[in-house]
Design a protein around this nucleic acid. Sequence first.
DNA 1: CAGCTGATTTCCT
DNA 2: GGAAATCAGCTGG
Length: 248
Amino acid sequence: MTGSDRAAGTRADRPAGGPVPVLPRAFFAAHALEVAPGLLGCVLEHETGEGLVAVMLTEVEAYEGAADPASHAFRGRTSRNAVMFGEPGHAYVYFTYGMHFCVNMVCQPAGTASAVLLRAGRVTDGIPLAEARRVAGRNGARPVAEHDLARGPARLCQALAIDRRLDGADVCDPASPLRIRPSVRAGSGGAVPDVSQGPRVGISAAADRPWRFWLTGDPTVSPYRPYVPRARPKPVSSPAAEDETMRG
DNA sequence: CAGCTGATTTCCT
DNA sequence: GGAAATCAGCTGG
């Protein structure tokens, strides 16, 4: 590497001597339904000791608070969702299914819970590092297609190494390890991809609200999966085992 | 390709 | 005690 001339400088959209471009906090102070489509095309970056991985967002979902039964904040503030009630422009990271992290961008002024779930993106920087993270911890270690690196909310977090330590991180702070840059698709002069809208994925409540937004036709958008209740994990298979209370 | 299942922790009723 | 803003591996058609 040549050092000073091109360090982190593969992009020419940064004004010389100016501040690092990040989305202003006012952008996030609005309603999630307004913020969500505006996030498409923006770039989320996470810088760690391993290096930088960046993804251009291609799929998001809006969540309200008290008025949205599908929101984690629907039943009020808890230790898990506390960040959703705070200042906009911070990351709300939660852990689910015993193994996965998902990341949201907090919207609305402090006191009003609202957020946008980041569901998918296209890795634009640090592809080898993202690949290594995605195959880590697996035995078969089959290669991951480039368009699958951040296709899905938990995969996106794994590619970016986002975990609960980043819950509350300020993505509007240029000095933050996790930050978000403005859209690269606006004003480029080229064709602007269309935004599609449809129901949110994997939720049982308010499943009819079309609050999911994605870039039409983008291969990194996750497949739509409606909510389906799962059958009981272990149905009775032995006739003599009627004593279900035996576990104490 | 559609459908099902295990993994595994946090939160809520 | 059970569901959850999920994913990967496997099965069968």
